[in-house]
Computed example of a mutant assay.
Amino acid sequence: MPFRFAPWIAAALATAAVSACATLQPVQTAEKMIGSPQSSVRDTFGAPTETYQLADGKTRWIYSKQPLGYEVYAADFDAAGRLAGFRQMLTEQEIYQARPGLWTKHDVAERFGMPREPIQYYPLMKREAWSYRMYVSGYQPAHFSAYFDDRGMLDRTMIIVDAIGGDSRDHSK
């Protein structure tokens, strides 16, 4: 008699495979889901860390891997609640769209999520700083910081490359 998987084992393996793809390749997984309802996105990626109602009638779900991870993903849904886009937000391309003097804390949060690193205040500059871990130029660890004035307006952004690299490999060999 040939060996057969019980139906629940096959279902568990399929769920594990989808979950692994969503964890290892979230953007590629989500691109295949464009047009899917919010419930399918939640089933695949879990509950978002934040949600925002955007000005154009869309809804954005933020999936933050901060403070120890280097990614913040945004799942954008159209007015009907269907997935319209999914992308990694902590890229140089996304950061360069920030508009000092025009954006507020809310605009930065909608784009990158709330910071998971402690918020810093620099009294001599009179600036509050939000910091996010990211990669630049491939896999070079860096920090992206957004500085706000006392009115809550974005004053400047800065990307600082982590010269040490943040990994524990021995590069002397």
Rank of each mutant, 00 (worst) to 15 (best):
P37N: 10
P48R: 11
T157A: 01
F148N: 03
P7M: 05
Y96D: 13
K173C: 06
P115I: 02
E94P: 02
Y70S: 10
F86T: 04
A80S: 14
S172P: 00
P141E: 06
M1S: 13
S39A: 09
I9Y: 03
A16W: 08
S168F: 05
A47D: 08
Y139L: 09
A84P: 01
G46E: 12
T15A: 15
G101L: 08
D78T: 02
A79Q: 12
Y139C: 07
R82G: 03
R87C: 08
G101H: 10
K58G: 12
K105Q: 14
T59G: 07
F148E: 02
W8F: 09
I95D: 03
P115W: 00
E128L: 03
E31P: 02
M33V: 10
A55P: 08
R151V: 04
W8R: 13
I159R: 06
L83T: 01
A30T: 07
G85S: 15
L154S: 04
W103E: 04
P115E: 04
A129T: 06
P115Y: 00
P26M: 07
T23Q: 11
A75P: 08
A146V: 15
S39M: 00
F3E: 14
G165P: 01
I62N: 03
W61H: 11
T15Y: 07
M33P: 09
D170L: 13
Y132V: 04
K173L: 14
E117F: 05
Q53C: 00
R169H: 15
A17N: 09
E128F: 00
P48K: 13
A109I: 09
A10V: 14
T51G: 08
L90D: 00
R151I: 02
R116F: 09
R82Q: 14
Y122E: 14
